[in-house]
């Protein structure tokens, strides 16, 4: 298992494990169409809401076209627009628990074709919404177990047999 460091080769800016295409750690940079989760932190009166997505700039939700008003502290999920500024197709996520994970681990939380996500829901009964920016929202079911599973995925994302490990540790429902 070899470690690739920034600058080892042209175009390498993060740390990689040889053989794994995605960096082990990567701060989130918004791309068009990304699904992200954020929190409303301010309102530009009658124009837009400002949404903190835990990145180096906040996103904007235009009030025109919204069928519902948002309030401060609302958790919302949406898609990054082509202009990289606006959040579109937004839905409000009521109640539940919001947790922030390293963005580079999100693919592992989802799994191939969403398999890990299904696995988690089967075990705990929780419903989850996943943001590429590392924010995960969950509601219902055994939430404390869901949180523990997510933390386990973050700790073991780079280790083989993760799905089986989770089945063993947390049991199938």
């Amino acid at each position: 298992m070899r470690v690739v460091l920034p600058g080892d080769r042209e175009g390498i800016y993060y740390m990689y494990l040889e053989g794994i295409d995605v960096p082990m750690q990567q701060a989130y940079i918004p791309r068009p169409k990304d699904t992200v989760i954020g929190k409303v932190i301010a309102e530009k009166k009658n124009v837009a809401y400002i949404v903190d997505i835990s990145s180096f700039y906040a996103m904007t939700v235009l009030i025109k076209g919204l069928d519902t008003r948002l309030k401060q502290e609302d958790i919302i999920i949406g898609n990054v627009g082509d202009n990289l500024e606006n959040l579109e197709n937004i839905r409000v996520l009521k109640g539940g628990v919001l947790i922030e994970l390293p963005p580079s681990k999100i693919p592992r939380v989802i799994g191939t074709r969403g398999e890990m996500l299904k696995h988690i829901s089967n075990i705990t009964g929780s419903k989850l919404e996943i943001g590429k920016n590392g924010l995960v929202w969950m509601n219902g079911g055994k939430l404390h177990t869901t949180i523990k599973i997510l933390e386990t995925i973050v700790r073991r994302a780079h280790i083989r047999g993760l799905t089986d490990y989770i089945s063993k540790e947390f049991g199938e429902r």
């Binding site: 628990v97 947790i99 404390h144």
Partner: peptide, 23 residues
């Protein structure tokens, strides 16, 4: 970071006698 509302905490605790970290 883990965030939840007071209602969420109370609802979970009152029904299960557990906190969100399982304690």
């Amino acid at each position: 970071m883990i965030e939840y509302s007071r209602e969420m905490f109370l609802e979970y605790y009152r029904s299960r006698k557990l906190r969100l970290d399982g304690r």
